[in-house]
Computed example of a mutant assay.
Amino acid sequence: MKFICYPKCTICQKAKKWLDEKGVTYELRDIKENNPSYDELKKWYKHSGLPLKKFFNTSGLLYKSMELKNKLPNMSEDEQLKLLSTDGMLVKRPLLISNDTVLVGFKEKEYEELFK
């Protein structure tokens, strides 16, 4: 299981605490230091079943400064994935990835459901 996060993010800290309290074993990866690649993002996106927009950190400063709210609708899926792979700060976090699941963001109910 991979837990991809930005250590300074409070939501990521909550998710990490939850995983630690439940005794879940995971590989920690700092999204700012080790940005997901295009191929990883494409695989996770396809596997998640979520709309690609859910992978964007829409509340992030970089997203806002790049005015992506207006640009994304005119970009192809491939262009969006390439953009996401340029900077980890564009990616919504945390990402929790196992062989059969991709969770984007931290919703305690989703985590509980996964670890029943």
Results as ranks from 00 to 15, higher is better:
Glu33Gln: 01
Lys17His: 15
Lys14Met: 12
Cys12His: 06
Arg29Trp: 02
Ala15Pro: 02
Asn35Ile: 13
Pro7Phe: 09
Glu67Pro: 04
Tyr6Val: 11
Gly60Thr: 00
His47Ala: 13
Asn70Asp: 11
Ala15Gln: 05
Ile11Arg: 15
Ile31Pro: 01
Cys9Thr: 06
Lys32Asn: 14
Glu27Ile: 08
Lys64Asn: 00
Glu21Phe: 12
Ile11Ser: 15
Leu103Cys: 03
Asp39Thr: 10
Leu19His: 03
Asn99Lys: 13
Ser98Arg: 02
Asn70Val: 11
Leu72Pro: 04
Tyr111Glu: 05
Glu40Lys: 06
Lys43Ser: 08
Phe55Gln: 03
Asp20Arg: 14
Met75His: 00
Phe56Ala: 01
Pro51His: 10
Glu110Gln: 13
Phe115Ala: 11
Gln80Pro: 08
Pro94Cys: 13
Gly23Cys: 05
Lys69Leu: 06
Lys42Gly: 03
Lys116Asp: 06
Lys54Ala: 00
Phe115Tyr: 15
Lys71Asn: 08
Pro36His: 08
Asn74Ser: 06
Lys71Gln: 11
Ser98Leu: 04
Gly88Asp: 10
Lys53Val: 01
Lys116Pro: 11
Val24Arg: 12
Glu112Met: 13
Tyr63Cys: 00
Glu67Asp: 11
Tyr63Thr: 07
Gly49Trp: 06
Lys69Pro: 00
Met75Gln: 01
Asn74Gln: 04
Tyr111Cys: 03
Pro51Gly: 10
Cys5Val: 05
Pro36Phe: 06
Ser37Cys: 07
Phe115Gln: 13
Asp39Gly: 07
Leu95Ser: 05
Ile97Arg: 05
Pro73Gly: 03
Asn35Cys: 12
Ser59Leu: 04
Glu67Ile: 10
Met1Thr: 02
Glu112Pro: 06
Thr25Asn: 12
Lys43Cys: 06
Ser48Gln: 03
Lys14Val: 02
Pro73Arg: 09
Tyr111Trp: 09
Lys82Cys: 06
Lys17Thr: 15
Glu40Ile: 02
Pro51Arg: 10
Asn70Pro: 04
Val24Ala: 14
Lys43Gln: 12
Gly88Glu: 10
Met89Asn: 13
Val102Gly: 02
Lys82Ser: 02
Leu83Glu: 10
Leu52Arg: 05
Tyr111Leu: 01
Lys71Phe: 09
Cys12Asn: 14
Lys8Leu: 15
Gly60Ala: 00
Tyr111Ile: 01
Glu67Arg: 08
Trp18Val: 10
Leu41Glu: 08
Phe3Asp: 01
Asp39Gln: 09
Trp18Ala: 04
Lys43Asp: 07
Asn34Ser: 12
Asp30Gln: 06
Lys54Arg: 07
Gln80Lys: 11
Cys12Pro: 05
His47Gly: 07
Lys14Trp: 07
Lys92Ala: 07
Phe55Lys: 05
Val104Asp: 04
Arg93His: 13
Lys16Arg: 13
Asp100Leu: 15
Leu81Val: 05
Lys32Val: 09
Thr10Asn: 15
Glu112Ile: 13
Lys116Asn: 13
Ser76Glu: 00
Lys16Ile: 07
Phe115Cys: 08
Ile31Asn: 04
Gly105Ala: 05
Asn34Leu: 08
Val91Leu: 13
Ile31Trp: 02
Leu52Lys: 11
Asn70Ile: 08
Ser37Asp: 01
Lys116Arg: 11
Glu79Pro: 09
Ser85Leu: 09
Phe3Ala: 01
Lys64Arg: 12
Arg29Cys: 09
Leu68Cys: 02
Asn99Gln: 14
Leu28Tyr: 14
Asp20Glu: 12
Tyr111Ser: 01
Glu33Thr: 00
Lys46His: 11
Met89Ala: 12
Ile4Ala: 02
